[in-house]
Design a protein around this nucleic acid. Structure first.
Lengths: 155, 155
DNA sequence: GAAGATTGAGCTCTCAATCTTT
DNA sequence: AAAGATTGAGAGCTCAATCTTC
């Protein structure tokens, strides 16, 4: 039973992330939030001043086109505000509204609590080791070598 | 710097899975495949005979409604076939077509190769430990305790 | 009534194309 | 030409509602 360890590891990462996302929705949904929107709230709450949509997209590691619709919905909900950048008329600066900050203040403790629950029982060394391994995986994934022959195989 | 280890772990899992998905698309896209469709191919290829949509959905850990559209597109592409179940007229039995199996045979080695690349340099114990930790996380995520007070907090 | 499959609405995501400003 | 933002098409996901069959 010398199973493919690498495959099991990668599959495990995907499955675990999937479970987190799935369960996270149960927390966010009753508040009218989606996981992606909670991410935005989180980034903006950590921000001192404002941030451009471009920067927000970089933080989210998401296509810029995605940020537009995301902010549209959050602006409609009243959690976020777009302001003109005085220095560059191409960019919008994004800030949390009072309602947005209040929402974040309410959700965030619950989120931390859930994370504490999920990791309860794990030892500090195990968590540290896992974090290191994950970082190595993420770094290596970002620079994997594409198989050249795939293009030629095209029918 | 006594950072929240739990938070970093969970965030790390999400970020790593995200990187995998993102890079995986680069492999699948030139073949006209999406990651979700590759998953279906994988499940069907491992299957001896046929499988119902319901079972397929369970394997994917996805809503049943999702399977319908997924199979619609794959059936159109000619990779998959829906057949009537002789015993139960409510269910469709799904099988790989010859083209579907051929596609899987072509992609699968590349996928394994990428996974091998990504995990290169990681020791067997580190991978084993990480897998165990991930399994614990996934199991705990599936049974986390929902904060009761959220509903009452609704404005 | 319960189970398998489907449909429709809403959100997230990618990519390609476009528009305005730099 | 390059950069920030937007739009539209296509895919995936969830949930709620519906249809047929058990």
């Amino acid at each position: 039973m010398k199973e493919n360890l690498s495959l099991r590891l990668v599959t495990g990462v995907m499955a675990t992330a999937d479970a987190f996302l799935r369960e996270g929705q149960k927390l966010f949904r009753p508040l009218g939030l989606t996981p992606a929107q909670y991410n935005v709230l989180n980034i903006l709450a950590a921000q001192e001043g404002s941030i451009s949509q471009r920067e927000l997209g970089d933080h989210l590691v998401v296509d810029r086109s995605n940020v537009t619709g995301l902010l549209d919905r959050m602006e409609t909900a009243g959690w976020v505000r777009r302001e003109d950048d005085p220095d560059d008329r191409r960019v919008y600066r994004i800030t949390l509204t009072a309602a947005g900050r209040k929402l974040w203040t309410r959700v965030h403790p619950h989120y931390l609590e859930i994370i504490a629950q999920v990791t309860r029982g794990l030892g500090t060394p195990a968590m540290r080791d896992c974090i290191v391994t994950l970082q190595q995986l993420e770094a290596r994934a970002a620079q994997w070598k594409f198989p050249d022959d795939l293009d030629n195989e095209r029918i």
